[in-house]
Amino acid sequence: MTNNLCEPKAVNKTGKILVVDDMPGMRLTLVEILEDEGYNVIVAEDGYQAIAAARENHFDIIFMDIKMPGINGVQALREIKRLDPGVAVVMMTAYSVEELIDEARSENILDVIYKPFDIEKILALVKASAGK
């Protein structure tokens, strides 16, 4: 954060975010952007890690990829919702796996976003959930 020409937008943000994605490129860029916005971001590479993280933390918002090796995003979502029913979850997908998306929607999620997405939309969702 050196050489900034203007003040970072949200240095004081305290929201805690979980990013779950098996694709390193997607995971790293998303984490970096969110951290850059001042959020506290925890990363999980698959559904198991995500459940483990949710067991120990309450997240203001979780970004969860749907298609992952091992248990898929919807299965992880169910488990996490069991642990923390009120948690806001945004499902991410590059696929139109309609059945899984429908299943996810029935689990009281915040939204489904399709890759490649506009970061602005992600930030708006974060702001709505974590910035309250």
């Binding site: 694709m23 860029t29 590059a94 970061i119």
Partner: peptide
């Protein structure tokens, strides 16, 4: 198409990040 959307998403995020950084630096 589906397989391409993941890398495309990462590229888009990366571009966003880079733009953000450039905007805040003298390089802009």
């Amino acid at each position: 198409g589906h397989e391409l959307r993941n890398p495309l998403g990462a590229i888009k995020n990366a571009a966003y990040y880079v733009r953000n950084k450039i905007n805040k630096s003298e390089l802009a």
